[in-house]
Design a protein around this nucleic acid. Structure first.
Lengths: 338, 338
DNA sequence: CCGGCTATCGGAAACGTTTACGTAAATAAA
DNA sequence: TTTATTTACGTAAACGTTTCCGATAGCCGG
């Protein structure tokens, strides 16, 4: 069975292609009776408009591109959930691209998307990204861009994040209040906005409580989780005075648990831990992990909503703005005081 | 800066559109010198072909659609990873659609995709899906379909799954060997292939070890996780003789942990648990969870590869075949014997 | 010198829509 | 009555590619 198209319907109905097209779009230029006839036949033959012909003609694809480092990070999985929800509500489709935190891949993806395959882009930048020329050129191509979670403030556009600074501050303060004297901070690339902001919160919380800042207690993680556990073990061994750890990303919190298991450190008696995480099952950890939990779904939903608004209004470059959704500190046993 | 297209390049170079197009496709019909000139200008002007014009003309979109129940299930996140990898290697794009286990949504998505937006579809069917007419009609629309994980054998096409039956058998046997006398099975919809197969493994393992089958020990979970925990609690309360639980899906394993916490049942002393799960962090659970771990990434990768092969060869309907990748039982403390 | 071949290019149709424009009839305004 | 205006439809151009036909020129064998 060949695809049924407008020409098909038009011939069958004795109408012109134009009229059929208009009827299906509920145009006021076609009589109610004709509309009904057209709709009936379209339904009967299961007519589906060719998305590409439509996109080509209208110069819009009803599709947004989502470019993220990885989908196995639960934060991004939840965010995609929110994005898909917003997109579906507006009748948009979602293309997914993974950068695997590789700059070259991110640049290639963005470059390709300038071909017009998407009407807008949601991006969480790769940790390896330094140069942002590929992002700047999006403005020229008339493709709106909205950052979420991992942003670059050099580009003037909308950004949706959580309150990274305050969360870093709160996490550190929480450890201080629990009696920790030497608090380490495990983070990913400091060039990343989230790493930087959370770290600043860590620093300011220490200062506010009159604690010295010790650069040796800051560890930048790698892509490789195995390696991270090694690095954490080394850190804990070389600095046995560490009694608190703020892991600003989920895998580093998990890595810390493993390292502590290896070294026989007890949580929370010897070391207290608070980590960013969106896994529901952290409450089943041994011990349950105190977390900074991000509103991941809402971040995705909100970012998509802002992008879609811009797309619908054909505003290629949207005003520089920051939308901040608050994370929540959920206290569990990994930071219990007794 | 307006979009640069073939016409632009052609005018600038004093060539025809046809020649420029052919040059960029490395056709043998254009001289090496001209190819070089064209490529140089294209690179300089950052020419990106319009994907929609190309798709319309060639009648292929270089895009595959992935239709899954949810992305927050870690299995699917890993599978997407594999799918994206295979797609990228072949120069394909990935559209994601979530059904949220809702039949109506699945049907609507499939119907829409028949418009030609994708060259092929990877599907893991929703638990609510009974009727499969929408899937059968895909064959008419010339769109190849490959199932992964949650399959429907009524449709003759390729299926990529894990060895659900054997895994159910192994899990149950493992509990029996650990000394469990009354083993409950928690599953999702029995109409689903995976639920059915895993359950059959459970039944056969019981029979093979001369244990009676007690229907009261089988619990079908719901979409709502809160409710599931309630149901599990009720089950454990009404049948205090239960000393082993086989959870054939991750959330039910997690739900069981929560229920046991509520009821003060000790794992593994009072109840031993084995569950399907792909979370790396189950090793941090209290106690670490014995799991059946699926090769989720490989399942996605393999399914995508099979689909892409069919797409490239323009084989709309592919031969009925089952590819089975083995899961692995990873023994941890939740089924320890002492 | 002629016919056939190859190499290299251009013209134009086609993919299926959308839409600017035109037109005929019907209706309203004068 | 005549003249606008509205209603309902058709014609055809356009979106940017790809590709089917040529067409021209050069070359070679006969």
């Amino acid at each position: 069975m060949k695809n049924v198209n407008l020409k098909h319907l038009a011939e069958e109905l004795g109408l012109s292609i134009a009229t059929v097209s208009r009827a299906l779009q509920d145009s006021h230029e076609v009589s109610a009776a004709t509309k009904e006839r057209v709709r009936a036949l379209a339904a009967e033959l299961r007519y589906e408009p060719n998305a590409y012909a439509s996109s080509l003609r209208r110069n819009q694809s009803k599709t947004i591109g989502v470019v993220i480092p990885k989908v196995t990070n639960h934060f991004f999985a939840l965010a995609i959930n929110g994005i898909e929800e917003a997109a579906r509500q507006s009748g948009y489709h979602v293309l997914i691209y993974l950068t695997h935190d590789d700059y070259a891949r991110e640049a290639a993806i963005i470059q390709h998307l300038k071909g017009g395959r998407v009407d807008g882009i949601l991006l969480s930048v790769a940790s390896g990204t330094e140069d942002i020329a590929h992002l700047e050129s999006l403005q020229d191509a008339n493709i709106p861009l909205v950052f979420f979670d991992r942003v670059r403030t050099e580009i003037a556009t909308a950004r949706v994040t959580t309150n990274d600074y305050e969360s870093g501050y709160r996490a550190t303060e929480h450890l201080l209040e629990a009696g920790c004297q030497h608090i380490a901070h495990l983070l990913i690339s400091n060039s990343l906005s989230i790493g930087h902001n959370r770290h600043q919160g860590y620093l300011d919380a220490l200062a506010a409580h009159g604690r010295p800042y010790d650069p040796d207690l800051v560890l930048a993680g790698t892509i490789d989780n195995q390696r991270n556990v090694q690095l954490i073990e080394e850190l804990l061994r070389s600095r046995p005075d560490i009694d608190g750890i703020f892991a600003s990303v989920e895998r580093l919190a998990v890595g810390t648990y493993h390292a502590c298991q290896q070294l026989g450190r007890r949580i929370p008696e010897d070391i207290k831990i608070v980590g960013f995480s969106n896994l529901e099952s952290v409450s089943l950890f041994d011990p349950p992990l105190t977390t900074i939990t991000q509103p991941a779904h809402d971040i995705g939903y909100e970012a998509a909503r802002i992008l879609l608004q811009a797309v619908e209004k054909k505003r290629a470059v949207l005003p520089s703005q920051s939308v901040v959704l608050d994370s929540e500190l959920v206290q569990r046993r990994s930071t219990a005081t007794e």
